[in-house]
Simulated scan of single mutants.
Amino acid sequence: MIVDFISRALVVLLGYAYPAFECYKTVERNSTDVEQLCFWCRYWIIIALLTVFERFGDVFVSWLPLYGEMKLAFIIYLWYPKTMGTTYMYETFLRPNVARYETDIDQVIGEFKAKAWNMAIFHVQNSLKFGQTTFLQFLQYLANQSTAAQEPQKPNLLVSRSPPNDTVHVQEQASEAQTPESYMADVIHRARTKRGPRDSHPNDQ
């Protein structure tokens, strides 16, 4: 585990950081060395292809013993001043094969760019529609919440209906059927009953 981590760290430092700094110095020199600049351009082309193949090939070859060490040794071989493996790899393997299939590669890249552009436009349009719909729904939700807050809350009164007073109704019907004399006697009797014996007047007895 530690050995693998060290190998990956060395690959990043010696394969990317150091060559990037050397390329920077070559570009920023007052008298630009064309040969040196071409060398570093070829190096980055090889590294880019190696990185692409690694994304698919690491699954099949990463289990090999000393795989990280071999990759690190190959990277150092590419830029080491005494070996200059970049020039050999580019002139022997990369340049002849790419020159042979350059037209086909350009056609495939052109078709891929067109499809990628159409797909990007399609996703952007769908994203805009979804964002617009979501925004309108959010505004509608805020409007509903504001309307609900402004409306006065009506108290929920529970109206209990008392059963009809059948006794009073019967008494009223009975009183309607009575004569005026009996009705007055009945009213006096009710008044005496409500006042009680203490409230009754001596003349009423």
Rank of each mutant, 00 (worst) to 15 (best):
L10F: 13
L10S: 10
L10Y: 07
V12L: 15
L13T: 09
Y16L: 12
A17I: 11
A20V: 06
E22A: 06
Y24S: 11
E28F: 04
R29L: 02
T32M: 00
E35K: 00
E35C: 00
Q36D: 00
L37A: 04
C38N: 06
C38V: 05
F39V: 00
W40Q: 00
W40A: 00
R55S: 06
F56H: 13
F56Q: 10
P65Y: 01
Y67V: 12
E69W: 14
E69M: 12
M70L: 07
F74M: 09
L78K: 01
Y80R: 01
P81F: 14
T83A: 04
T86E: 04
Y88D: 00
F93S: 04
R95Y: 06
P96S: 01
R100N: 03
D104H: 11
Q107E: 14
I109D: 11
G110I: 02
K113A: 13
K115G: 00
N118K: 13
V124M: 09
N126F: 09
N126K: 13
L128M: 12
L128C: 12
F135A: 10
Q137T: 00
Q140S: 09
Y141C: 06
L142E: 03
L142N: 03
Q145S: 09
T147C: 07
T147D: 09
A149R: 15
Q153G: 06
S162P: 05
D166R: 05
H169A: 03
V170N: 10
A174Y: 02
S175A: 10
S175I: 09
T179E: 15
E181G: 08
E181P: 02
S182W: 05
Y183T: 03
M184S: 15
D186T: 15
D186L: 15
H189M: 05
H189F: 07
R192I: 04
T193H: 02
R198A: 09
D199E: 10
S200R: 13
S200Y: 02
P202D: 13
D204K: 03
Q205Y: 14
